[in-house]
Amino acid sequence: MKPAPLTAREANLIGCRLCHLLIPLPQEQDHCPRCGARLHQRQPNSIARCWALLIAAMLFYLPANLLPITISSALGTRQSDTILSGVLYLLNSGSWAIALVIFVASLFVPLMKMVILVFLLVSVQLRSSWRPKDRTRLYRLTELVGRWSMVDIYVVTIMVALVRLGALANVEAGPGAAYFAAVVILTMFAAESFDPRLIWDRMEDRNE
């Protein structure tokens, strides 16, 4: 096996997260001399912060899916829809492609994100050395795909702004929309606060 390469931590160096300048480990927590960003060897408190945000997101996931996300009224008939009822409605009316998009973006992706983050956190905390490359890939995917869940919120906000015909037709955002937005934002922050280098730190420990 090829020996593991020297890491910045081993060399007592610190890389700036923003401009990637390599700086010798400062005595105190300091700022990057080039771009002024704060310097951390690893994201401080990464795991705890990630867990906290993740648990909050999981708690909000329930009301986000159970409460109505839109309340539309047309000619006085009020109808409140949750995400799932919207998906079912689209599926029943034959537009399964749109139903699939909404299902993936609004139900599947947030759920998968949370599952992946839990898996990563648990594996890091157990100091697992199982397939670090794949786990890093999973993390990248989580970070990348996270923002797409906001599509739902954008659709709701645009509808609320556009469909304002008074008594004829009206769309209001339901309480579920706020919780759903909270889920998406919290998972994004959770993914952000997770430091993928923690996955590789285990490899270093093994080398020693």
Partner: peptide
């Protein structure tokens, strides 16, 4: 160059207020 002292943060992190808040809101709902 001296070694940097690494002091793990102790105690309750303020970030845990977020899930606590979520719990309160969920519980209230």
């Amino acid at each position: 160059l001296p070694e940097a002292e690494i002091k793990p943060k102790k105690g309750f992190s303020i970030v845990w207020l977020i899930p606590l808040l979520a719990l309160v809101i969920g519980g209230w709902l």
